[in-house]
Simulated scan of single mutants.
Amino acid sequence: MALDTSFIGRELPAHSVDVERGRLRFFAKAIGETGAAYFDLEAAKAVGHRDLPVLPTFLFCLDMEKPDPFALVRELNIDIRYVLHGEQGFTYHAMAYAGDTLTFTSTVTDIYSKKGGALEFVVRKTAVTRDGELIAELHNSLVVRNPKAVK
């Protein structure tokens, strides 16, 4: 069954997240970061940051804190058993820091298929803003495997 391409251009409900120092430290430790600026406020300030900086891929974690992170999957009637993480990318425009409130606004930018419908792709772009200032753009795609497609 082909995914509904009328979702292309749909803006999903925005959500905002407060960036907390403790979570930044935990994430830095989890990914093996050793730079003092990601753990110690004074070390961060000594190298020119106003607070602990947000590590680049942490924005993806914050985006998943939306009230219903799988709403789009349900709305598109996608069976989660056949979903694969396809691609993820980040474009940065400014630094984000502990203490910031970041707003995430996602838009479905494309839905297409390959291999005769065996694989379908849902592409999203997410603008991350702080007080209206663009901080980053997240790009990701889900791959949906169609088990009924002819191989």
Score class of each variant (00 low, 15 high):
Thr5Ile: 13
Thr5Ala: 15
Thr5Cys: 14
Ser6Thr: 13
Ser6Tyr: 03
Phe7Tyr: 06
Phe7Glu: 01
Gly9Ala: 00
Arg10Asn: 05
Arg10Gly: 07
Glu11Cys: 15
Leu12Glu: 08
Pro13Gly: 03
Pro13Tyr: 04
Ala14Val: 12
Ala14Ser: 15
Val17His: 01
Val17Ile: 11
Val17Gly: 08
Asp18Arg: 10
Asp18Glu: 07
Asp18His: 09
Val19Ala: 04
Val19Met: 00
Glu20Thr: 06
Arg21Pro: 09
Arg21His: 02
Arg21Asp: 10
Gly22Asp: 12
Leu24Met: 09
Leu24Asn: 02
Arg25Trp: 12
Arg25Thr: 14
Arg25Tyr: 06
Arg25Glu: 15
Phe26Val: 14
Ala28Asp: 06
Lys29Asp: 15
Lys29Gly: 13
Ile31Gly: 10
Ile31Leu: 12
Gly32Thr: 08
Glu33Trp: 07
Glu33Val: 01
Thr34Ala: 11
Thr34Trp: 07
Thr34Val: 13
Gly35Ile: 03
Ala36Val: 04
Ala36Cys: 07
Ala36Met: 09
Ala37Cys: 14
Ala37Lys: 13
Ala37Val: 08
Ala37Leu: 14
Tyr38Gln: 09
Tyr38Thr: 08
Phe39Lys: 13
Phe39Gln: 11
Phe39Ala: 06
Phe39Tyr: 14
Asp40Ser: 09
Leu41Val: 15
Leu41Lys: 13
Leu41Arg: 09
Leu41Asn: 14
Leu41Ile: 15
Glu42Gly: 00
Glu42Thr: 09
Ala43Gly: 02
Ala43Asn: 06
Ala43Pro: 10
Ala44Leu: 04
Ala44Thr: 00
Ala44Met: 07
Lys45Asn: 04
Val47Lys: 11
Val47Ala: 07
Gly48Leu: 01
Gly48Ala: 02
His49Lys: 06
His49Val: 03
His49Pro: 10
Arg50Ala: 09
Arg50Lys: 12
Asp51Gln: 01
Pro53Asp: 04
Pro53Met: 01
Val54Thr: 02
Val54Ala: 01
